[in-house]
Simulated scan of single mutants.
Amino acid sequence: MCQQNMILTQPIKIRTVEYLYYGCMSMNKKLSREEKIRYHRWMLYEDLDACLLRLFESFLESAPQLIFQLYAWATLKPSEDVVSLSIRITALLMSWASLSISLVSYHKSLRYSRKEKKNLSLLATPVYFIWRACEVGARLLCLSFFVTAFQAWIFLPVLLHWVAVTIWIIKQNTKFYDNRCFETIFNIICGYVMIFCFLNLREGHTRFRYLWFYIVFYFENFFMLGIWWQAIPLGDWYDFYGFILIFILSVLHIIVQLIYYKFSHPSKIDICLPWNRNLCYESVCHSLDEDEKQMKKPHHLDQQVVVNNG
């Protein structure tokens, strides 16, 4: 974990410094209007890149640590006083919140960097945060409960999901890099993040992608939860309340996501789409059309990143 943290921390620091530099240059009164606009765009791209790296860092570091901490707590059953228990729960909640905040920060940064996208309003931001927090929280609890009963067997459903989602991403023919090797590595990392939540890597209608992904997502969740229920009878208080919390978070996730798209989405959109075979295929496995092929490819990596979380 420390090596992963060091690998990602240095590029984040570099992009933060460049972000501040470009921001200062964009306000330099000695520069022309065109130069200010150019520096402002570079500033947004650096911010986008830094937020993307923070997103990867959060899920590479905080997500596995959360699962391990919950596993250790459930298996060791330490006797703690009220103060120690409060500190432990606060630490878990802070890690959970950091994952959700990284998703919100990246989504906001992505919209800022693209002229055609409206940004999240003050009302939409907390709604989006609750949606992502419920999604990630339910998933982490399911994985934590499963690992308490089956230990190393947790890698089987996780790896199957990772491989399946990565293949799905590759089949979507994403175009973040000109180098196919780099593109595949990026797809693999995004596939890892999608163990815990959904990432939309292509433009277009996302309803069917959400539908198919969450069908598999919640099937896995409740399958793991059911096996855990049969293997370990509910005994300690956190077993019972954790079991109930998963159902509450899952229901809240769906409700809040629908509220977000119905009332809080920056662009007014219809939740329901007509069921059409071609539309469904293009939404789930979207391929580049002729207009996209003819678009000018930006040379900067930040300009190529179009990961859209909703």
Rank of each mutant, 00 (worst) to 15 (best):
I189C: 13
T166A: 03
C181F: 15
D178N: 13
N173D: 15
I185E: 03
I189F: 14
R180A: 08
P157W: 05
N187L: 00
T174K: 09
Q172G: 12
V165C: 10
Y177G: 00
H161N: 08
I185T: 11
I167T: 10
I170M: 12
Y192W: 10
G191L: 02
E183H: 02
W168H: 06
P157N: 04
Y177H: 15
V165W: 06
I185S: 01
I169D: 04
V165I: 15
R180T: 03
I185M: 06
W162Q: 01
T174P: 03
R180I: 05
L160H: 03
I169H: 11
W162G: 00
V165K: 07
I170F: 09
I185D: 00
C181T: 11
Q172C: 01
T174I: 07
W162L: 07
T174W: 06
L160W: 06
F182M: 09
T166N: 05
C190A: 08
N179R: 10
E183T: 02
V163Y: 05
K175G: 12
W168R: 09
I167P: 10
I169V: 15
I170L: 13
K175C: 05
A164H: 02
I169K: 09
I188T: 03
L159H: 01
T166L: 06
Y192T: 01
V163K: 08
